[in-house]
Design a protein around this nucleic acid. Structure first.
Length: 922
RNA sequence: GGGUGAUUAGCUCAGUUGGGAGAGCAUCGCCCUUACAAGGCGAGGGUCACUGGUUCGAGCCCAGUAUCACCCA
């Protein structure tokens, strides 16, 4: 084995073996099912840090439960990401000077399929690099036939129950993509604009009203001016009319208590077809809905001729100029407003009156709320349930139609008279409605929102609407692992749909994790140029390639220079290869309960070092066990050392800790336990304690016992770590397992280690604690007194009780090796001790003669520090115990511990004080 | 405006029935000791945002304040 761990050498090899052997598939046994559906990534996308993080968690869970013997299914797949994918292909066409209309619908969709074939494998390949173990043979895509059938089925059934309807509504219109988008796909952010105050003359010539607006061009569609019914300033004007400037339309002044008297002038222009609030008010007052925009957000033919065809912003300029010219522009004031933009196109969204398809969600929402209330579904961490309830209680009907071409076409047909027929296919529609073949039917041009098909994901992937054995076994799934950002988009909708169509919840738990951000807490995005590619962290990347990647194909090329500079500064040497296991361990260790996960490369480096540590520990164990008797033959006599009994005890404890943390989704704590045990106990103490046994002439039984413990603890530890770090544990396990008497083709399918409490030896743990204290005491003196590590020291002991004597007798070998001692002598009479530095182990004194080694002043300083610490402690404890209330009211056990601590500190203090005095007098 | 979360060492973060303030990284000192210098052995470093309350006892529970972040309107 190499001196340094080289992840690249083992990852591909093991992944291919696992996949080829079919280890990822469910075993179809009678054991309890455990299933997770992957949140389907965009089929043509690539793996980002969020995916990598999420997939690490899912894979850890799956591997853990698989090892626990459950029948596990991790269902992989991708979605078709309607708008995003269509945009990519449209951009490709645009590069050739073509639009999708040049190709026509069928040809364009063909192009998208081609693109899907070309790039669709990227993300699944990357998932494999992460070590993910889903059942690839069951991979699904939302546009597959089966899933498309499920979509049609759901649509038709909802329609037949009047839960899907078609209607002309005001929607969020993306004038660039030419489609409606749902509320959730609109991002509103503060931007600088103006508040235009415009004078609207009263028709009777008796004056004018002033209305304020952030979008002057919408005045072309105004149908009223509204005031608050109790607003004394305008009360008498209600019922009169004004004449709309530039247009000439006479429109009423109405009263509505929606109007905020404080805002602007207290008069609001009402444009029902171009503002959501106005739309509601328009309905209340039966105002006409006049649409004045085209699908490009230019002015349409409903407006005066002068403005027709102008883009909305040109029209704005013109209208403002025209109003100024006729003296009707009262003022223009800078104003910060919320501007809605499409999350894909970043175009300013216009409220726009169109025919759309909706799901009436109210009746679906109720059972979905109840399922969480009554505990059928549990959010982890629990507080996300509030977010869920908040949204579900105020849920709006869901606009599911999109005016794009890529997606599930709405299964609705129209005849020449505009009659609407919904069915699973044209044939079904014809048959059901007795429409003869010579009557032409045209299918609705719209497609469904991608989330519509994603909402069916937990059951459509298992074969629904057919009653498949997989559906019976693996639905409801065990847990959904997802980010909080899609609780509304996806989680809530899945719950509604699964309850409606399977009568079951889609998952029993929802583990909500945080969002991965960069080291500064900034969201990672291409436009910020702070994106890290998980694969680059695995393989490493040189600076030039990284700069190239971050600045290539930018939407805003002007930012490239800045990004390049920042990148060169932050990654002067590029990014080293950390390997998959280290990356996964990093993700696990960052998976605490917070909402932001700052990804710090230093953490990855630390865990890369951890992998190296594990690698070298394994190397050491193998060097000392391969070719030797490791006690595989149970009949051979063995002798277990103190260290053996101790490490076995600690292993049992760690096993339960790790399981507890995995069961409660605290991957950070699980990772911590593993790190701590591996490095600080197994490596730092146990391996060191083994050395004297293996190297000195101990009995064969003792050596056998130690070798056996070495390999068995390591073997169990590898299994314990496997769910988080699959590759290195597999590689090491292959070599270690036979020595530990285990056989099997892969660590993946070995049982997960279970605590055996009969193996916890508390006497051994106490004794080893004594040994450690002894050794650490000597090391501290050595280090603080600047004594060379190579210098063997003589020590003298005084004040031993029976236990100390016993422990000493048992552990001389450990002490002299690990503390590097020349000799250990017990003083019959402490007063005979030469001037020495002292360390305390309980009440026993460990004395290191100063002669020639230790400086008097240095030792005094050291003692002073120790004494100071003890004095502080004694003061604190004394104060507490002198408080009558504490003694009277605190639990007796607590009082007792505090008393004991005080007594121990006092003993230690007086010992040190005596020692200090002695040295001072030298 | 409503809601949620955060505030603990220089940095990133743990701290789970209220009873010793911790880890990793960074810093400092010594050491190439035959698994590992991607290492070993030690050390320093915190008014737990602030104010008040409950309690024998508060980083933790309660109320309020400040700052920041996110979600919704």
């Amino acid at each position: 084995m190499d001196k340094h761990f080289d992840p690249n050498m083992i990852e591909t090899k093991w992944y291919q073996t696992w996949e080829k052997q079919g280890y990822f598939k469910p075993k179809n046994t009678d054991s309890a099912p455990y299933s997770i559906m992957i949140p389907p990534p965009n089929v043509t996308g690539s793996l980002h840090m969020g995916h990598a993080f999420q997939d690490t968690i899912m894979d850890t869970l799956i591997r853990y439960h698989r090892m626990k013997g459950e029948d596990t299914l991790w269902q992989p797949g991708t979605d078709h990401a309607g708008i995003a994918t269509q945009m990519v292909v449209e951009r490709q066409l645009a590069a050739q000077g073509l639009s999708r209309h040049d190709l026509g619908r069928d040809k364009f969709i063909e192009k998208i399929w081609e693109w899907k074939e070309e790039s669709g494998g990227t993300i699944t390949k990357q998932l494999r690099r992460m070590g993910a173990s889903p059942d690839w043979s069951r991979e699904r895509f939302t546009m597959d036939d089966g899933l498309s059938d499920a979509v049609k089925e759901v649509f038709v059934r909802l329609y037949e129950e009047d839960l899907i309807y078609r209607g002309k509504r005001l929607v969020n219109w993306d004038p660039v993509l030419h489609t409606a988008v749902s509320d959730l796909e609109v991002i509103s952010e503060e931007e600088q604009g103006n508040l235009w105050h415009m004078r609207y003359p009263l028709s009777d010539g008796s004056g004018h009203l002033v209305v304020a607006t952030t979008r002057p061009e919408t005045m072309l569609g105004d149908q009223a001016v509204a005031v608050h019914p109790e607003d004394e300033r305008y009360k008498n004007l209600v019922g009169k009319t004004i004449t709309l400037p530039l247009v000439g339309r006479e429109i009423p002044i109405i009263a509505d208590d929606y109007v905020d008297m404080e805002f602007g002038t207290g008069c609001v222009k009402i444009t029902p077809a171009h503002d959501f609030n106005d739309y509601e008010m328009g309905k209340r007052h039966n105002l006409p809905m006049l649409n004045i925009l085209t699908i490009n957000a230019a002015i349409n033919d409903e407006a005066p001729e002068k403005y027709r065809g102008l883009d909305r912003y040109e029209a704005r300029k013109q209208i403002v100029a025209d109003l100024e010219e006729i003296g009707l522009m009262e003022s223009i004031k800078p104003h910060t407003l919320m501007v809605p933009r499409g999350d894909r196109s970043h175009a300013v969204i216009e409220p726009f009156l169109t025919d759309q398809w909706y799901v009436a969600v109210e009746s679906l929402a109720k059972p979905a709320i109840d399922a969480v209330k009554n505990g059928d579904i549990e959010f982890v961490p629990k507080n996300w349930e509030n977010t869920y309830f908040e949204w579900m209680n105020n849920i709006q009907d869901w606009c599911i139609s999109r005016q794009i071409w890529w997606g599930h076409r709405i299964p609705a047909w129209y005849d020449a008279d505009g009659n609407l027929y919904v069915g699973r296919s044209e044939a079904e529609v014809r048959e059901k409605h007795q429409i003869s073949a010579d009557i032409e039917l045209t299918q609705d041009a719209d497609v469904l929102d991608t989330w519509f098909s994603s909402a069916l994901w937990t059951f459509s992937t298992l074969g629904w609407p057919d009653n498949t054995p997989e559906l019976a076994k693996f639905h409801p799934t065990s847990v959904l692992v997802t980010g909080f950002d899609i609780i509304f988009f996806w989680v809530a909708r899945m719950i509604m749909m699964a309850l409606k169509f399977t009568g079951e919840v889609p998952f029993k738990q929802v583990y909500v994790h945080g969002l991965v951000r960069d080291g500064e807490g900034q969201k990672m995005s291409k436009s910020k140029g702070n994106v890290l590619d998980p694969i680059d962290l695995i393989d490493g990347i040189d600076l030039e390639s990284l700069v190239g990647k971050r600045t290539y194909g930018m939407m805003q090329p002007e930012k490239a220079a800045k990004i390049e500079k920042a990148t060169r500064k932050q990654f002067a040497d590029g990014i080293p290869a950390y390997g998959t296991d280290a990356l996964r361990f990093t993700f696990a260790s960052l998976a605490s309960t917070g909402r932001d996960i700052r990804f710090d490369l230093n953490r990855a480096e630390g865990y890369r070092n951890f992998c190296n540590k594990l690698w070298n520990a394994t190397r050491y164990v193998l060097m000392n066990t391969e070719g030797y008797d490791t006690g595989v033959d149970e009949s051979a006599t063995i002798e277990l050392s103190l260290a053996d009994r101790w490490i076995v005890s600690r292993l049992q404890e760690v096993e339960s800790e790790v399981q507890k943390h995995l069961d409660s989704y605290r991957f950070d704590l699980a990772a911590n336990s593993l790190y701590e045990f591996t490095w600080n106990e197994y490596c730092d103490w146990y391996l060191e304690l083994c050395k004297p046994v293996l190297q000195k002439d101990s009995s064969e039984a003792a050596k056998r016992g130690t070798r056996r413990t070495l390999v068995r603890v390591l073997e169990a530890l590898l299994r314990l770590m496997h769910p988080i770090m699959p590759f290195i544990t597999e590689e090491a396990w292959q070599a270690v397992a036979p020595l530990a008497g285990k056989d099997g083709d892969t660590i993946m399918l070995q049982p997960y280690p279970q605590t055996d409490s009969s193996k916890i030896d508390s006497d051994a743990m106490a004794e080893l604690e004594w040994v450690k204290q002894f050794i650490v005491g000597v090391r501290k003196i050595r280090s603080e007194m600047d004594i060379a590590p190579s210098k063997a020291l003589p020590v003298l002991l005084a004040g031993l009780n029976d236990t100390d004597s016993q422990y000493l007798q048992n552990n001389r070998l450990y002490l002299s090796t690990l503390a590097k001692l020349e000799s250990i002598e017990i003083l019959a009479d402490e007063n005979q001790a030469p001037e020495s530095a002292v360390a305390l182990v309980g009440e026993m004194k460990v004395l290191i003669p100063m002669a020639g080694l230790i400086d008097k002043e240095a030792e005094l300083a050291r003692l002073e520090k120790e004494i100071g610490k003890l004095q502080g402690e004694i003061k604190r404890l004394g104060g507490k115990l002198n408080n009558e209330n504490f003694v009277a009211k605190a639990p007796p056990a607590v009082v007792e511990t505090e008393r004991k601590k005080l007594a121990d500190s006092q003993t230690a203090l007086s010992n040190l004080e005596v020692q200090y005095e002695k040295i001072r007098q030298l």
